[in-house]
Nucleic acid binder design. Structure first.
Length: 564
RNA sequence: CGGGGCGUAGCGCAGCCCGGCUAGCGCGCUUGGUUCGGGACCAAGAGGUCGCGGGUUCGAAUCCCGCCGCCCCGACCA
């Protein structure tokens, strides 16, 4: 492509709305332009990268037996009602105003619908179907450029199996394919165990890139062998301090004492003898959650145990139910509440907690004896510096961007929509599904996050929009001009993707800055300075190293560089 | 949805508090000339519903009310 005729609107100044490097550079390099919040046009250069990434994804999906298809973006709302996801997605789902249709945020329902109608025998299984398609999610707050948009390109695949072992195989195939995809895209990534959230299902893992721009929080051990989304991460912590004897309950006056720290100081007891009570509700059912000391409740874990979305209870309602304000509530004698406790509290005795009476606490609580605790679960939020559960060292807490996510869905959707097949015994059985996603724009943005410098983007060969950037310097000199044209034709003939800066009346400095900004792996500079000696210069973008090559050697040298 | 900020030429901004001639500046763009290895220079130009609607006023980019959009922090996030 020639810059004189191509459309690559580069800009010198960084746009004010962009905060993270990838966003700034994608705009400056003329890859994208925003149309509306979270909605971006991909201009020719950006679209080339999008196609490159898509092609890598396609090759790796085909390699595990995936079959590409193309599903509609519009789908009947009724289908989503049948699986309960109109409610589950809530505001995130785009609804059409003049038809009972929704814009699909993902495609489990549609896949299931097709499977229901056309998969009838175990002989039809397994299947892996995938597509690269635009998804629509009404994000409350789009941000970070293309990292979180209201419309984005996603590779989504779905496995259909007749057995749980089959699902394991399909899942592992995706795991392997995903690793290859991200490697080929030149990304440094890591894999974390994750919560399956509103998608439903059992096992799930995320492919993440560590980044300050990320929206997920991950606990990762020193050697990286343990990594989990904070939503499900756990660590090695000691249980609550248990008193030997179970003394009788005792009410103590604690005027204006609310927080765990205040109680500890006032009563001179350690945090491991204190139970913090947190009041939540799910679908109107009040829930009291007991945590040890100042341990932080992880709401995702709570949601997982309850099976519903839990919200902090309204303080007024809390007062009606318990007779006390937040700070003074406790598990003893509490009616109407489900009581759930963190597993650190299992078997705890001699605890102090609120008395459900303002300015009073109860001491010597024996959870088994005094309260109706429904169960003990891991509700803790892991903290920096705690030990990883697999003994692989201290945990670091880092932010990450989710590049891909793979789920073992099971039969949630096939049950809801009645997608069954006849097994070898002639019995109807629900199809066992897996679902696997990759954000295409995220790969692009993350690649830039990891591969840029103060001058611009530094593309990896694998997804660079062009392999080489041919720069003509000193276009007025006929010989130099002809030499550049000749090299351009030569590269085109050899099917080497080349961007040719053939602009006249543009100063050399301008061209060099543009080339560094656009970031093709190699710059081929044809200028009077070296051409008078019959030399062409090649600059490697990543290292900045330069070499001079005889004009007739240029093709072989470029090929050599590109093949390594 | 809560808090903060912003909206003036394609881009980046000044002007607004304290209303007043024809609304400015830099970049970019057009034309002509010079320059030509790290975002050149000179000259002449083109380009604006001052986010939208209403109000106050002799007069509104500027003051008041409402709305819309965008960015940041938080909440939310398959």
């Amino acid at each position: 492509m020639r810059l004189t005729t191509g459309f690559i609107p580069t800009v010198k100044e960084t746009p004010t709305e962009a905060v993270i490097p990838s966003h700034k550079l994608m705009i400056r390099a003329g890859m994208i332009r925003m149309l509306s919040a979270g909605i971006y046009s991909f201009l020719p250069l950006g679209y080339r990268v999008m196609k490159k990434v898509s092609e890598i994804v396609r090759e790796e999906m085909d390699a595990i037996g995936g079959q590409e298809l193309h599903l509609p973006a519009l789908s009947p709302r009724e289908l989503w009602e049948q699986t309960g996801r109109v409610k589950a997605f809530g505001e995130t789902l785009f609804h059409l105003r003049n038809r009972p249709l929704v814009l699909a945020p993902t495609h489990e329902e549609v896949i299931c619908w097709i499977a229901k109608n056309h998969i009838s025998s175990y002989r039809d299984l397994p299947q892996i179907w995938y597509q690269i398609q635009t998804k629509f999610r009404n994000e409350p707050r789009p941000r970070s450029g293309v990292l979180r948009g209201r419309q984005f390109l996603m590779k989504d695949s779905y496995s259909l199996d007749g057995s749980w072992e089959g699902l394991d195989r399909s899942y592992d195939l995706h795991d392997k394919a995903y690793r290859k995809i991200f490697e080929r895209c030149g990304l440094r990534f890591f894999i974390v165990g994750a919560s399956s959230g509103a998608m439903g299902g059992s096992k799930s893992q995320e492919f993440m890139m560590e980044s300050e721009a990320g929206e997920d929080v991950i606990a990762i051990s020193e050697d990286g062998s343990y990594a989990a989304n904070l939503e499900i991460a756990s660590s090695v912590v000691s249980p609550a301090g248990a008193a030997k004897d179970s003394a009788a309950l005792k009410e103590v006056h604690t005027p204006n004492i609310r927080t765990i720290d205040q109680v500890a100081t006032f009563l001179k007891v350690g945090h491991t003898h204190l139970a913090k009570s947190l009041a939540y509700e799910a679908d109107g059912q009040p829930i009291l959650v007991l945590m040890l000391g100042n341990d932080e409740l992880n709401e995702a874990k709570l949601n997982g145990v309850v099976g519903e979305e839990c919200h902090p209870i309204d303080p007024e309602r809390l007062k009606d139910l318990t007779g006390a304000d937040p700070g003074s509530i406790g598990p003893v004698g509490l009616k109407k509440f489900r009581i759930l406790a963190d597993k650190r509290l299992e078997g705890a005795k001699g605890l102090v907690s609120g008395a459900n009476k303002n300015d009073y606490h109860l001491a010597n609580i024996d959870l088994e004896r005094d309260c109706n605790v429904e169960g003990y679960f891991d509700f803790r939020t892991v903290m920096e510096g705690e030990d990883a559960p697999d003994g692989s060292g201290k945990l670091r807490i880092v932010k990450g961007v989710e590049l891909g996510h793979i789920f073992k869905l099971g039969t949630k959707y096939s049950d809801a929509l009645g997608a069954t097949f006849l097994n070898e015994d002639g019995r109807a059985q629900s199809i066992i599904m897996g679902s696997y996603g990759i954000g295409i724009e995220r790969i692009i943005a993350c690649h830039i996050e990891q591969n840029h410098d103060e001058f611009g983007i530094v593309w990896d060969k694998g997804i660079a929009p062009f392999q080489a950037h041919l720069i003509l310097v000193g276009a007025k000199n006929r010989e130099v001009n002809e030499a550049a044209e000749e090299i351009y034709s030569l590269l085109l003939e050899e099917k080497i993707e080349v961007l040719f800066d053939d602009r006249h009346d543009i100063s050399p400095g301008f061209k060099f800055k543009d080339a560094d900004l656009l970031g093709m792996p190699y710059q081929i500079i044809v200028g009077e300075k070296n051409f008078s000696n019959g030399k062409i210069e090649i600059k490697e973008r990543r290292t900045g190293s330069r070499e001079l090559v005889e004009k007739n050697q240029i093709l072989s040298r470029i090929k050599e560089l590109l093949s390594t």
